[in-house]
Design a protein around this nucleic acid. Structure first.
Lengths: 308, 308
DNA sequence: CTGAATTATGCTCACTGGGAGCATTATAGG
DNA sequence: CCTATAATGCTCCCAGTGAGCATAATTCAG
């Protein structure tokens, strides 16, 4: 039972590099003529890279000039059909999540709105967007089109659990997979050679990269609640409203302003600097900074997002 | 920036197969003469296994006869030195967590107490065990032995955060890595050719398998709080005390009995069956069963473990 | 200079969920 | 019948959190 045999596979490291600006979460994609956008992706240098993460950092630096701060391994994708273009060799991708303060779009790459990829994940508006309404309608048809009562019940169940209420932001990946399984995504059509679906489900990426992006969003939303990762996306000093907008952008929901302030101040997550923000309209806000020692005081310091 | 190059690596699938019996969490290991125990590990069948998870299920079934229920990908380990025995080819392991009801130890394998591997992770006793006390003392020496004040402060910080109070069960992996970095584990000695440490830090496994086990424990403890995974480890019907003991075994802490009952009943996680447990001493307990529809009602149904 | 608009900040009130412990019930074994 | 043991029921208290009102400190239009 010991690994007398190991499979030889082709491995790449794919990065979901996330930033938040103007209240929108964004991720880095690269374009190639005549192709869908793709996540930045690079090889491991088997000789030089002592660890996978170092390999990721190395090629992200060399190809985009970005020095990423927070990096976390996401998931390893190795389905047989994930790269139908690539012949019989199994193509394995180790996906990583990286967080950066937004900078100029680096070489060859551009920032793209996460909710342009996954429009149904933005629940910040009271009313669902037209796209989301259409997707929900298409899901309802899919439920109704089940061949028998059992299948219909099971489909209804899955839609109810994943699309709420209550809305669970962390289920982003499951929602993506449900839409795939309901044949509502162009990726499904591409993978099976079927005609494309009629609903608009946002911008698709190449290969399974949109799925990787959904994985990243799920993970990031989860992490938010128990580790102080938001601060990786913010400048050293920020107002509480900037912090709140960043959290809201990632979580995809809106929060109560006064309560957010109370939560974040009383939890010891931040401390005031005495400085004031350059004021535009209204009372100028105090600038805060992250308070790292919170990690000594509270076991799981995060911004408790009330997914209801 | 697209993967024009992918690295060729040797990949295995390693499984942390967990069960709970007699109030102790256990995992499956395999022995080979003259070697430390190892996690069961097998290759991907590049042609037949459509997905990595199916590959794992296939070889676990064929080698151990176990049909695992819940399976979840844990992490991908690809450090250069993780398999110093294996030559220049990079050895990548995709670790999986699998949960089963405990059965007879299957072919060639045996169950081993998780806390025999990670003794400091069991915080159920009011008093720390002798091993744990020794480990804490060794950590204190390591802090004090830092070359300068900055290093000592940073070490003290890490020890304080990870070994509490407050105790955070989810930091099992970080604690393992801290002990490794403090040169208190035989794995470190083995990897660096140093003399073995003098403290007893529990049973080591081959390669980086104890680290993979620590990863599994961290993940499982986290999952417990927001997904109803405990029930994968229990029979169809169980008393609330059995449920509580299973949770406690995994979480490594004890819980207040009446409050646990209240939590688990009021949350809709279980429902009574009207049946009574075969009684030994004391009032016979009612048998409960998992109530799957809880997932439709509550976004993140789990057993909220109060790591303080 | 004044008032409206805008944003930050302070505070209260009600509710809920969880921590702790006391009380009662149902069984086995003598 | 009495005691030990475990299950179950219930209360009290407190911290956290959802909701909203009130006040402070600015900018900007007139």
């Amino acid at each position: 039972m010991t690994p007398d045999v190991a499979a030889l596979v082709a491995m790449t490291l794919d990065a979901v590099i996330v930033a938040v600006s103007q209240g929108r979460p964004r991720l880095l994609v690269v374009d190639e003529p005549g192709q869908l956008p793709a996540l930045p992706s690079g090889p491991l240098d088997v000789e030089r890279d002592a660890t996978l993460e170092l390999g990721l950092r190395r090629w992200v630096r060399s190809r985009t000039g970005l020095e990423v701060g927070y990096v976390e391994q996401l998931y390893t994708f190795g389905d047989r059909d994930r790269r139908p273009d690539a012949g019989p060799q199994r193509q394995v991708s180790v996906g990583y999540l990286a967080l950066v303060e937004e900078t100029e779009p680096p070489l060859d790459a551009r920032w793209i709105d996460v909710y342009a990829l996954l429009p149904w994940e933005d629940q910040r508006d009271a009313e669902p967007s037209p796209e989301e309404a259409a997707i929900r309608a298409a899901l309802a048809s899919w439920v109704a089109a089940g061949p028998d009562a059992d299948v219909r019940r099971e489909r209804a169940e899955r839609v109810a659990v994943n699309f709420g209420p209550p809305w669970d932001g962390i289920r982003a990946l499951e929602r993506y997979e449900l839409l795939y399984g309901a044949h509502l995504l162009p990726e499904w059509a591409r993978d099976t050679g079927s005609p494309p679906p009629s609903v608009d489900t946002g911008i698709a990426l190449r290969f399974d990269h949109r799925r990787i992006a959904a994985t990243a969003l799920s993970r990031l939303r989860g992490k938010l609640t128990y580790r102080p990762v938001v601060f990786e996306l913010l400048p050293e000093r920020f107002s509480l409203l900037e912090l709140q907008h960043t959290v809201e952008a990632l979580a995809g929901i809106t929060l109560h302003k006064q309560n957010f302030r109370r939560l974040v101040e009383r939890s010891g997550l931040v401390e005031g600097t005495g400085q004031r923000a350059r004021s535009q309209a209204g009372r100028p806000a105090e600038l805060f900074r992250f308070r790292p020692s919170v990690q000594r005081e509270r076991p799981r310091p995060g911004v408790g997002v009330p997914y209801r």
